[in-house]
Structures are given as C-alpha cells and as structure tokens.
Design a protein around this nucleic acid. Sequence first.
DNA 1: TCCTTTATGTAATGATCGATACATAATGAA
DNA 2: TTCATTATGTATCGATCATTACATAAAGGA
Lengths: 201, 201
Amino acid sequence: MSTKGRPRAFDRDAALERAMRVFWKKGYDSASMADLTGAMQINAPSLYAAFGSKADLFKEAVELYTDKVGQRIKNSLPNAATAKEGIADFLMQTAISHTDPEQPHGCMVVLGALHGDDAENTPCGLLRDRRLDNVTLLRGRLERGVRDGEIAASVDLQQVAEFYVTVQHGMSITARDGATLEQLTKTAHAAMAAWDGLVSA
Amino acid sequence: MSTKGRPRAFDRDAALERAMRVFWKKGYDSASMADLTGAMQINAPSLYAAFGSKADLFKEAVELYTDKVGQRIKNSLPNAATAKEGIADFLMQTAISHTDPEQPHGCMVVLGALHGDDAENTPCGLLRDRRLDNVTLLRGRLERGVRDGEIAASVDLQQVAEFYVTVQHGMSITARDGATLEQLTKTAHAAMAAWDGLVSA
DNA sequence: TCCTTTATGTAATGATCGATACATAATGAA
DNA sequence: TTCATTATGTATCGATCATTACATAAAGGA
C-alpha cells in the first residue's frame, strides 16, 4: 500500500527535476542541501524521506538526466543510416544540448563530479562509468558500420570511439567557457573532418 | 629589508609546489585548508602570512603550474617549423603530461575549478581566462602559418584553434577516467587526421 | 640589553556542511 | 473514534569549513 499515512505534499518528479538542474549547474559538491531544498521547495526531512540522501538524490538525478537529456544525443547513433552520419549527429546534438539557453551549459555527466573518491557507488565513480559507457556505445555503432561494410575490419574502432568521446568531453568545457552553438557546430564539423582519415587505416 | 623579524621556518617555493599538487589533484573547492596545510607541512597562520588566503594561494599555484607544467606544452607551438607540427606536438605533449605517473592526471587549468562564480579574480574565472588564452595562443600559431604560406588566408583560424583546444580539454577528462599515454596519443593523432580537411577550406 | 618586527603553534572564531530528533498534521484501516 | 503510518516544519546535531586572536619565539637594529 502506498496510500497509507499522510500523503506527500509535493510532486516527487518535479522536485527531482529541479534537483537535477541544481546538480547540473553546480556539480555534486558545490550543490548544497540549502541549494537543493530551496530549488525543490521542500524542507530537508522531506528530501531525506523521499530520496534517502544527497548521494542517492544525485544518483536519481543522473538517471533522469541520461533518460531525458542524454537520450536525444544517444539516439543519434542507432537512428542514422551510417556510422559516420550517426557520429556526426551525435556531436551536433551534443552541441545543441550544451548551448541550449534553457539549460545549464555543458554535460552533467562530464562536469557533475570530477574530484573526490571515484570508487563504486560514489558520485564521481558513477559519472566516470557513464562516460566509459559512452565509449562502448560509440564503439558499438562503429562495429555495426563494419558489419554493414561501411568501415574496414582493420580499423581501430576503440581509437575512433575514444577520439569522438574525447571531443564530446571537451565540448562541455568549451560550452562552460561561453561557446555558442555556432562555435560548437564548427567544432563538431572539424572533428568529422578526421573521419575519412580514421576509417581508411 | 626582508631580513627583519623572525625568519620563515619553511621553504616558500617548496610549500607552494606542494599546494599546487593538492589543488591539481583535488580542485579548488575540494582542497581543504587541512589538506593544504598537511601537504605543505605548515600551520594555517603560516599559510595566511605567506600567501594571503586560499584563493591567493590558488592563484600562485596556477601561475606555478602554467610556468612549470604548461610551459613544455605551450613551447611546442613556437618551436615547431610548421603550424601543423606545432599543434601535433602540442597535443602530444598534452598527452604525455596528462598521463605522467608522477603527476595528477589531467590539466589543473581545465579541472581545477569548474563550478561556482566565474567573475573576475575568482578561481573559476581565473582558469576560464587561461583556457581562453590557449585559444588565442593556438590561433596565433595558425596566423604565423598563414604568413609562412603554410595555410591559406581563407581558412577559419578561430574554428581550427577552438577545435584543437576542445580536444585538449577533452583529454583532461579522458585522462582522469584512466586513459593511458598510448590511448591519448592515438587521440592526438586522430585529431591531426582532421588537419588537411580543416586547412584546405 | 631592550625594542621592533616577523613567524610560529595552539586554540578558537562564526559560518556552513549533510543529516536528524521531535512534535505535529494528515491520511487509511480497524 | 482510535490506532498505526507516513509527511511536514522547526530547530538542532556534530563535523568541518576558511580564517584569525593570542601568546610566544626568533631574528635585526638601537
């Protein structure tokens, strides 16, 4: 029974989304409980009752981020007809998201928790694993490109995937430094200028 | 007269270098005074007497970093015969530095203070300005390439500079995630695969 | 020697951190 | 109504944060 006891007086999903924005903008460490409860418009005990702890809340916020914000970026890969088009769109969607005026600039997964302990189930380790997953995701699309005959089997797919993910990482920093959509678009195109050289090896 | 009063009992330069390592590894916010005084092997009052404040100490640490660690990377640009070779070496020196087992992985200027207020004379703004300076630095080497006849005058030099700086930014994240020198070297080479396409525009 | 100046170690400052104790309020079940 | 259960608001917890008072120690100059 979830209808027992006093009902929750706030919208859990809306509060989580607001928390995500705070973590996204300030990062895990710099986002204080006062910041979070202020944005979520609840008191600390309500936060702890609903989400467990600051770290647990962050974990849910990251999941919401990957589901909501990251989905469009990741969908670029399977949706495109070719690996080249997929990665080009992957970088373009990244550029669009990272400069969206309605959102904090840059990627929450890249900027959200860079320092501190990166062990299992820590905010830092959590994000690192997500970033490493991205490499695997790109590599998977490249492997499909090999199966489709688009890419030669001799190409070092891991190298290509790591290069484009590294470019994506860098776009978060550059976006935080104030780069516009036009600038990041050019960077995305510049990265794609390497494609033919990379897959002709 | 600097020899008046009780002489300082510790080596200021050595203490600053130790502080730099702490900031480099943990970032400005996560580096506590306890971390700093512990590594510097001095007490808080000595730190404040010698350096002013945590923020002032950070500023000096960044200057030491750019002078000592960043110098080799930046020297790649003027020392090379061509802009292409200069940027290739720029990325290679970055890869070497960011995976040096004797140092924290990644760049202090990129990872040292990403969140918080980025106004003038804040740790965050300080690093952002250094990163933007890097774009100017690369652009300057590209302009020399135009003067030397290596690059056509029609090429969008700003775009090229921003692309390679973005790659360098990304290498800091990737290095923090555990990438090896071999991996970052491949990424550097991959980025250079875009060169001909970029300067042929 | 005595004074000024600077550095040091101890200990404490107020502020803020994440997290809770506690009393009260609001629901369903009995 | 009465009880068990869950949520809420207030007020606070001990820990840690950056910073500093304060008394003492060590140097040069008089």
